[in-house]
Design a protein around this nucleic acid. Structure first.
Length: 652
RNA sequence: GCUGGCGUAGCUCAACUGGUAGAGCACCUGACUUGUAAUCAGGAGGUCGCGGGUUCGAGUCCCACCGCCAGCUCCA
């Protein structure tokens, strides 16, 4: 049989011939270069990621990923998951494997084991995993039939693997791939790197419980988190970066900068210090200013409601466990078995719907945009609370827009513009997610087509990049969520805009159209900060506590050279306060140096030093936080400084 | 809510295998009156998260509860 040849097209467009059946790795080494072959981890052949051992049996568009490519790092982290699973089964026989994907900064693997892993176990696992790396065992892919695969894992007693395989077979798979390194074998789609040695180093990070298939009714598994890099240098750099990020943690800075506290008597509800309250208030006023100048009206509504409201809204059935119920003492005295007739509101929408119905609305009133910053309570699961990002008491910069269907696109557009303005003002990078109709939903397909169409039209008109999340929408309508990351890379949802066709039905909301007949409005739920608490947490981390002047809880610290000038300093403080500047003057016993240091540690934007010279000329010596050394200090007339402060304190 | 870890002064931490709690910073008082990141001296401050138990004796061991942290579930 004569050797057929295939054409390989490389990313630069060049073409090479090679014998059919040549493994990609060999082709790279022989036809491109030994250096590339050595650095190669995986390839993309005609659009699909494949192993380097894959044979070139037809004309192929080929891309090679080396250790420099993010795709390669992701692949060796997946390799690392296999290696860790191998290590665990070597060290703890009888442990069953389940799944082990690579994730954003590493990988995890879930195991079924009678007991959790201890610190010592994890240390042993890390050593064993790195030993497997040192052994440099090749990864080999084989393809088998479903029967073979099921038999293989049944014989090993790997029940979870069998379940996964049966599932995938049930979805129509006929050929399954296995990956082996040495004696250890896993059911896995791949691709993988060439050998365990290509994974430079594995670091075990933590362990925790996880539910089988993410369902809390299922068995609890033991999850091991880890990460992997091509070399120790990469790992060390990442660990260093992680350490730096942890210093920005808002819980840490909340203490250091004295912004808020928590107490065991009110888990999940913050106590705000004067400084924290200043940030809260500035953000609140800023949002009020934006809302009122963008066609919203602000209203305040009750915090406590009779359950009748929640029965209409549907919360009583679906959301009751998350609401704080309040007992009606009269009902209780009368022998009512369940006297919890009231609840603190967990969201503003039902209050707004009631407000809407207080008068007969006309098409001329639409869009009606109701803004509210009331306090909300949600009884979150104890284990999910954490810092300011997940709390039980919070306020949203909430608004509901009641409009006609043909007004949706325009309303969404101007909302996203406003959100973009706010996020840009504080320098937050966000990513948008467009969530469409879920399997469980209300309304017919025509309605969903229109709803999703309106949102998409708005997104396209704005030219905003977004990720599509099919099936992730609320049961009552599609939505766009806006996420940002905290200092250690966890993603949090802040802003959102959701279309709601259900609420107007449930609350029987109508407006009188031009035809004089009643019509159903559509409601848009929307928030920019999301919750003040979470937004502030993100801002603290984003600015590492060094807020811009307009947001800084204290904008100016006054330090005197000698207490001879303290009276003058007090006057300076009063004059600044009179023009709205948030200023502090520490007249306690202590040196100027120590006070300058303290102001700096508190990350106050400006520290002004006053001595005899400044008193004589009514000037201030200004020290700017974070400024370069040569422009750190500057003496200027008081009026010029005050004017600068007022200017910089303006809303962005 | 689930799994694991943790809980000592306002903060950051120490206290050998159970022997009866200590430091730095912060705070208070006094001295110093100083020119841009820590002046010196003295003082006060803790029923070791809460409640039981084991023990001659518990911050150290056991149980239950509360809270915090990581992850899971859920979610702004």
């Amino acid at each position: 049989m004569s050797e057929a040849s295939v054409t390989v097209t490389l990313p630069d467009g060049s073409q090479k011939q090679t014998a059919a059946g040549t493994p990609i790795g060999d082709f790279v080494r022989d036809s491109i270069g030994a250096g590339l072959a050595k650095a190669a981890v995986l390839a993309r052949a005609n659009g699909a990621f494949v192993d380097l051992s894959q044979k070139l049996d037809r004309d192929t568009k080929l891309e090679i990923f080396t250790t420099k490519a993010p795709e390669a790092l992701e692949t060796i982290r997946h390799d690392a998951a296999h290696i860790v699973a191998d290590a665990v089964q070597r060290l703890f026989p009888g442990t069953q494997v389940t799944i082990g994907p690579s994730i954003e900064n590493g990988f995890y693997y879930d195991f079924d084991r009678g007991q959790p892993f201890t610190e010592e176990d994890l240390a042993k696992i890390e050593v064993e995993a790195n030993r497997i790396i040192a052994a440099d065992i090749p990864f080999a892919r084989t393809e088998v039939s479903p029967d073979e695969a099921i038999k293989l894992f049944s014989d090993k007693g790997e029940k979870f693997k069998v379940e996964i395989i049966q599932d995938i077979v049930g979805k129509g798979a006929t050929v399954l791939s296995l990956y082996r390194h040495g004696d250890w074998i896993d059911f896995c789609e791949g691709p993988h790197g060439p050998s365990t040695g290509r994974v430079g180093v594995i670091k075990i990070l933590s362990s925790s419980a996880a539910y089988w298939r993410g369902d809390h009714r299922n068995k609890t598994l033991q999850r091991i988190y880890g990460t992997a890099f091509f070399d120790k240098k990469g790992l060390d750099a990442w660990l260093k970066q992680r350490e730096e990020a942890e210093k920005r943690d808002h819980r840490r800075l909340g203490k250091d900068l004295d912004l808020f506290h928590f107490h065991p008597f009110a888990p999940g509800s913050a106590f705000w210090t004067p400084k924290g309250t200043a940030i809260y208030t500035v953000l609140s006023s800023y949002m009020r200013h934006l809302a009122l100048s963008n066609g919203y009206v602000e209203i305040k509504t009750p915090l406590l409601y009779n359950k009748g409201l929640w029965e209409i809204s549907g919360h009583w059935g679906k959301y009751k466990e998350n609401m704080f119920l309040v007992e009606d003492s009269e009902a209780k005295a009368a022998g009512d078995p369940d006297p919890h007739h009231f609840s603190l509101k967990p969201m503003n929408c039902p209050s707004h719907h009631i407000y809407y119905s207080f008068r007969k609305q006309s098409y001329r009133d639409l869009p009606l945009r109701l803004h509210t910053q009331d306090v909300l309570h949600r009884n979150e699961a104890a284990g999910s609370l954490g810092g300011l990002t997940r709390v039980r008491q919070f306020a949203q910069d909430d608004a509901h827009i009641y409009c006609r269907e043909d007004q949706i696109a325009e309303e969404v557009k101007s909302f996203v513009k406003l959100l973009d303005h706010v996020y840009n003002a504080v320098g937050l990078k966000y990513s948008a997610k467009f969530a469409t109709r879920p399997p469980q939903r209300i309304g017919d397909d025509a309605m969903w087509d229109r709803a999703e169409g309106s949102l998409k039209a708005a997104l396209d008109a704005l030219g905003l990049a977004y990720e599509l999340k099919p099936g992730d929408g609320a049961f009552y309508g599609p939505k766009i969520d806006f996420d940002v990351s905290d200092s250690i890379g966890r993603k949090w949802q802040l802003g959102t805009v959701q279309l709601d066709y259900a609420a107007p039905e449930r609350f029987d909301l109508t407006y009188v159209g031009e035809d004089g007949k009643p019509h159903r409005p559509v409601v848009l739920h929307r928030a920019i900060y999301g919750s003040f608490e979470r937004f502030i947490a993100i801002l603290i981390e984003h600015f590492a506590g060094a807020f811009p002047v307009w947001l800084a809880p204290l904008q100016v610290a006054i330090v005197t050279v000698t207490d001879r000038v303290n009276d003058h300093a007090r006057k300076v403080m009063d004059r600044l306060a009179a023009v709205g500047v948030r200023v502090t003057f520490d007249d306690s016993n202590g040196t100027m140096q120590a006070k300058v240091r303290e102001a700096s540690l508190q990350k106050i934007p400006y520290t002004i030093v006053i001595g005899d010279k400044e008193v004589a000329s009514d000037s201030v010596s200004v020290r700017t936080f974070g400024a370069a050394e040569q422009q750190k200090m500057e003496t200027m007339p008081f009026d010029a400084f005050a004017e600068r402060l007022v200017r910089e304190a303006k809303y962005p």
